[in-house]
């Protein structure tokens, strides 16, 4: 087993789980994976599985030259208080709204397992 929090988190994605870290002292969650809590430097933390519920913080639709389809790049705030970049599926890109509730789904893309979201 690797000592790298980043590697451990990626391995969990392949098992269908998004792990985030929670500092024991402050109770604050953080992501992407690090060796310590940002700012405090606290190395006392535990993995928790994200609930998977979140809210759209911002969204941009990348237009491509046809016939390629436009796609969205979205920032999602998980209910645990961490923000990540992702993509919202099962909805037209221009229908995505800031403040919209979304639910996590982990999908395989090529060799990687990536967190995606659907409307909740």
């Amino acid at each position: 087993m690797s000592d790298s929090p980043d590697t451990i988190c990626r391995a969990a994605l392949a098992d269908g789980k998004l792990l985030i870290q929670r500092a024991e002292a402050s109770g604050e969650c953080f992501f992407p994976p690090r060796l310590m809590e940002p700012l405090t430097g606290d190395t006392g933390w535990t993995w928790i599985e994200a609930s998977g519920l979140g809210t759209v913080y911002s969204v941009t639709v990348v237009g491509q030259r046809p016939p390629a389809e436009p796609y969205n790049v979205t920032l999602v705030d998980l209910d645990e208080g961490v923000r990540l970049m992702s993509r919202i599926e099962a909805i037209a890109p221009d229908a995505i709204r800031i403040g919209q509730r979304v639910r996590l789904r982990i999908a395989r893309e090529g060799e990687d397992f990536v967190p995606l979201f659907d409307p909740a």
Partner: peptide
Amino acid sequence: NPWESPYRPLIPLSPYALAAARHFH
């Protein structure tokens, strides 16, 4: 960034677009 590149943001453009969209909101 391995946690962002799978979503194909145009770099540097899309991060600024995300800031603009939030400012609009």
